[in-house]
Amino acid sequence: MIVRFIESIGDKAINFILSFYEIIRFTFISIVHLINPNSYNPAMRMVLVKQIYHTSVTILPFFIMLAIFFGSAIIGVVIVLATQYNLQYEIGSIIVTFVIDEFAPFFTALLISLRSATTINTEMAVMNLNKELDTLKEYKIDIINYLVLPRLISGVISSVSLSILFALIMLTSGYIFTLFYMNMDLHTYKYLILNAIMVQDVVTLLLKSIAFGFVIMIIPIYSGLKSVNKNADIPKSILSGMVKLFITIFFIEVLSLIIQSL
């Protein structure tokens, strides 16, 4: 009984390490292709344009609506709390740290994951099941160049651009709340925010968005491309991909908090 228990833990540990190694290897190969100019051909660029459209343009109305709704509510709470604790003079840096460093990239990553990562995981798994990957191999079309790179690049572009948009919407909401709660005029608000924004905040936003965009695409693609032999394997592939993705997103968020606090 105890031996079996220990063996099962060992199995899980070995599977976890192997899976981790595989995904790191896949990421490394993708990065090598990413920096190779020969990877870019008209077909790949066409997929890239379509993917950017699907990941960031079609999501825009829903994304803006959520950004206004949640962003306003959360920024409102932050401003009310700051007023209660007499932190009005720090309101600029509080808003900037909260919006630019933390909330905008994280919330954007969650939205893109829910909207696009599941779609991409399913798309890859279905292509795998339908033998379409065999077609690409037979016709000497590199799977990494044609399927992986456009999605990776679109993930990074979408994540960065939507995070900036989300931050702008939240900062605008912040002005509306400061106007009502603190009677702050636009000029003062603008002055406070611009004074509080530092290069470090912009770099944090960009680096976190790039990291989120990268994992939001690479994990579902990897999960979908792994062997899928029957229809019943598709939901399992999506579930496994999404669990790994959300663990990685939270890991990046925690890691960034630790790095910033150093």
């Binding site: 066409m46 339908n130 379409e132 079309i141």
Partner: peptide
């Protein structure tokens, strides 16, 4: 065993080969 790509239309399936090669 090597079907057409479902996410592409007919002309895209054919054009893909020359675009890549």
């Amino acid at each position: 065993k090597i079907p057409l790509i479902l996410s592409l239309n007919i002309v895209e399936n054919i054009a893909l080969i020359k675009e890549v090669h």
